[in-house]
Design a protein around this nucleic acid. Structure first.
Lengths: 354, 354
DNA sequence: GTTCTCTATGATAGCGTTACCATTGCGCAT
DNA sequence: ATGCGCAATGGTAACGCTATCATAGAGAAC
């Protein structure tokens, strides 16, 4: 009898259940959850297993009651490159809830003034902000945040900001790797479409391209390099320009997937087979890369991992009350990956089989 | 001395402060807050005044801990049609935080069994689930959730589920409107690319197309209708099939944007101008619609509004402890919009200008 | 061997609220 | 008077977690 001896809803496991299961005290479980480093590796593993086994999830309410600190972190985005955003959101959301922080997503429209937005954040008691591109490159925004004493973490910026922590990949190195990949395939003339000059990653990607070429002993032919803006539309123009050349390249490396997709479209319009007649590759591995046909060979950025790292970093900075001591900011560099799909191939030899 | 006698953040007043100030017990204050009617009018007034005076606001964390009504709502998604997801997330996030509910985003991979996922939800104390497409059409999932007594809200399903609330647009009507739009432009032969037959919206969209044609006195020519699967790839094949016809249509209406984009690609490959030689329109208004060139005329679904509505609905159902009484589920229908962009035009007259 | 570090873990006491039962008066029927 | 029912309020124990201090062992230094 006495069917509900407790007020617990459902019969969700609590930290005590986990503790009993793992044969430790609740406190130790708490420490594992909050990834404190004092716990012995062996114990941690045992607890982790118990958590898995019971499918335990900590109660946010209890946490904030006991911990007494409710943290609000803002995600300020401006360019809804939606596929990017959704991955980004997934990662942030995940870490935010683990860190018992509220994620407040805020859009920064063109019309708004930076000042207003920052004021809005202050009013909303936002304790810190994470900035995905292209906002991470807006000096105005960075300055305004610093002035308002709001800690921020930049994600995927090409620069390494002096006063702010950042999480990114090595754009230069990734572009270098992709270019080397094309060289290894046998391409001798490789076109390049640059990204929007306002975003710092553009320059880094171009530098990687140049370095690979130079190292391989190729000259950088300016005619093979077109300026784009990261948009599909701009990619169309850039690709036309390159393919109009009297001696067009056998491969084009675009600074992002949108422009690569545009390049594929232009090639097709001209009756060129991809990758038979032209190899095309992109950068970012957004959903567009696998939407179109052929699917794009591209550089994958671990977007959700980056946002995860960014949230963790930010939470730590807020907790330790950074801003004051101004220890040097952390810069985390995550690994990229070159994803081979169907849009690249060795160039057709000029003189076909005898 | 003893500067921090308590762990309280800020120095927000608690229910005890109010009680002391009003000269009653905390319990009475609680009753006043929760507007229970047992409190004598005079006492209530005194307490109200104390609340005013101290500017007291109850702590949500403590409330949900004690009240046991911590709400966690799950967002179960399977097909990361990322642009859809990010809009969806924005809406859900917004409402979830307003409703003091935690949003738990969960991916449902192909490999997982429905049973496992549902178990996972139960263990994770998820009180309710919202299901974006295509999961909202999975009968297996719906049944499993019902069996586990987890309330759910389907979003953008074509069906109107018997036992579950749903939020959607009128797919049939939207497709009807688009088809009428094409007819009004002067198109006489209008192709159609159907969506994945596993998703209920596909059939509804097709029905709208048929109705418009029939009403206008056109016959439905089966050769102008191709089967697609909602993927770009399938759109490529479907478009080829339709354009291979000896007498191809002057317009093609694809059941979603991905397939419309594919149709544009096929047209371009064949040297057809869009919209000059062929009008193409899509459905959904995902980011792809504005990524490609020409930008697609399409049907806009108010995705974030739909997810907002879904969360509100779900929260209300959980609060009122539905599931038991099985009052008829609510079905909310939101408005769509026909967005005209650059991919449609009047057909070229067969005999060009004398 | 004794004391003095540490390091890893445990015990205890809240965090601010509500659920549940107990208590206090008070009017009214017996 | 005595007891009863009822209205209004209070006391106490959760809720699930973390902060803080205490403690047990394992070495290290003497």
């Amino acid at each position: 009898m006495d069917s509900r001896t407790s007020r617990r809803q459902r019969n969700a496991p609590t930290i005590n259940d986990v503790a009993r299961y793992a044969g430790v005290s609740p406190m130790t479980v708490s420490r594992v959850i909050n990834s404190e480093d004092v716990v012995k590796e062996e114990t941690r593993k045992r607890v982790q297993k118990a958590i898995e086994a019971l499918n335990y999830a900590p109660s946010p309410a209890a946490r904030s009651l006991a911990g007494g600190e409710e943290m609000r972190i803002g995600l300020l985005y401006s360019n809804p490159s939606s596929s990017y955003l959704s991955e980004f959101l997934m990662g942030s959301l995940d870490r935010a809830s683990r860190n018992n922080a509220h994620l407040v997503v805020e859009k920064f429209d063109e019309e708004m003034s930076v000042k207003n937005v920052v004021n809005h954040l202050v009013r909303g008691r936002i304790n810190g902000v994470i900035l995905p591109p292209p906002l991470c490159d807006s000096l105005e925004m960075l300055r305004a945040l610093a002035a308002a004493m709001i800690p921020a973490v930049a994600v995927a910026t090409g620069r390494t900001p002096k006063r702010m922590s950042a999480v990114s990949i090595d754009d230069e190195d990734a572009a270098y790797a992709m270019t080397r990949h094309l060289i290894a395939l046998g391409h001798l003339r490789i076109g390049f479409i640059r990204g929007n000059p306002d975003q710092s990653a553009s320059e880094r990607r171009y530098q990687g391209y140049v370095r690979a070429l130079t190292e391989a002993g190729f000259a950088v032919d300016d005619r093979l390099v077109a300026q784009g803006l990261f948009s599909y539309r701009s990619g169309l123009d850039a690709a036309e320009q390159i393919l109009d050349l009297p001696e067009p390249p056998s491969a084009i490396f675009a600074s992002n997937d949108d422009m690569a997709a545009a390049t594929v479209a232009v090639a097709h319009r001209r009756g060129l087979d991809v990758p038979g007649d032209l190899t095309v590759c992109g950068f970012d591995d957004t959903s567009l890369a696998t939407t179109i046909w052929p699917e794009l060979t591209t550089i994958r950025q671990p977007i959700s991992d980056m946002s995860r790292a960014a949230v963790d970093l930010l939470v730590r900075e807020i907790r330790t009350g950074k801003m004051e001591k101004d220890g040097p900011p952390s810069h985390i560099l995550l690994d990229y990956a070159l994803i081979r799909r169907q849009s690249d191939a060795a160039p057709r030899r000029r003189p076909r089989k005898v």
